[in-house]
């Protein structure tokens, strides 16, 4: 194994890998935040008493958990632009290209997939809050916003964090699939490097290790967050 390929600067791929890792981290973070948005919305739908909203949320989670993420990415990449263009042409007569930046679409794809998992995590966490607490909050005259921010969010965060840690790992790993449509993150850097140097093992083991480090670091952050969320809870 030739490590000189991983040097810094013009001759080596070290700086490309560093840039790739930053890109992976950026996409994963945006996708994770997006998945929280989707997760909150669809969890609210699933918990709602409206039959239609519940059905919409069920369709969303069933589809996104049932088809491969790779296909979701291909579909949105090739189909998303087409769809938007049809809408733009039909509604506004705009006949240009609606450029879906790789970063944005990649984030959307992973956010949608991860969102299906976030939905279940958040739904479970909300259900874990004892009903009496909401009733108590109502009894002392808290309005809906207060109930949401003071009771629901801090308590469900505690229950949701371990599950959301898994969703984050999922989003982080799924960024590697965006390489297939050309986003230059860790995996794409490794693929380009292995093709041009004929050292596939060197490059893919590097990618493998970078992912391992990212996963380890982020796990520590989540453990910290869990400790923080549980600070008011007495434990044995």
């Amino acid at each position: 194994m030739e490590l000189s390929y991983l040097g810094w600067g013009d001759a080596g791929w070290g700086d490309e890998f560093a840039r790739g890792a930053l890109m992976t981290f950026a996409v994963a973070t945006c996708a994770f935040l997006l998945s929280l948005v989707f997760g909150t919305i669809f969890a609210a739908f699933k918990l709602s008493s409206n039959l239609l909203l519940r059905a919409v949320a069920d369709v969303y989670t069933t589809i996104l958990r049932g088809i491969p993420e790779l296909l979701v990415i291909y579909l949105i990449f090739f189909g998303g632009g087409q769809l938007l263009q049809t809408i733009a042409l039909g509604l506004f007569g705009y006949d240009g290209y609606i450029d879906l930046p790789v970063f944005g679409v990649g984030t959307l794809c992973i956010g949608l997939s991860a969102g299906a998992y976030s939905t279940e995590v958040i739904r479970g966490a909300v259900l874990a809050i004892p009903r009496g607490q909401i009733e108590a909050a109502r009894a002392i005259g808290m309005n809906q916003g207060q109930r949401f921010w003071r009771i629901l969010v801090p308590q469900s965060a505690r229950y949701a964090l371990p599950g959301l840690g898994n969703v984050w790992q999922f989003a982080l790993k799924d960024t590697s699939l965006i390489s297939i449509v050309g986003l230059v993150e860790i995996m794409r850097t490794a693929a380009l490097g292995s093709g041009s140097t004929k050292q596939p093992f060197t490059f893919f083991i590097t990618a493998f290790l970078i992912f391992l480090v990212l996963a380890w670091l982020s796990q520590r952050v989540f453990l910290r967050a869990e400790a923080w969320a549980n600070r008011g809870v007495r434990s044995a």
Binding site: Q169, K173, D174, T175, S176, L177, S179, I186, M187, A190, A191, S194, Q199, P200, F201, T202, F204, I205, A207, F208, F211, L212, A215, W216, Q219
Partner: peptide
Amino acid sequence: YIFRSTPLLVQIFLIYYGSGQF
């Protein structure tokens, strides 16, 4: 831990193309 925290795509490429190097 190792297999759960790395992407399957990287594992597949590592095993398939990586083994070619050896």
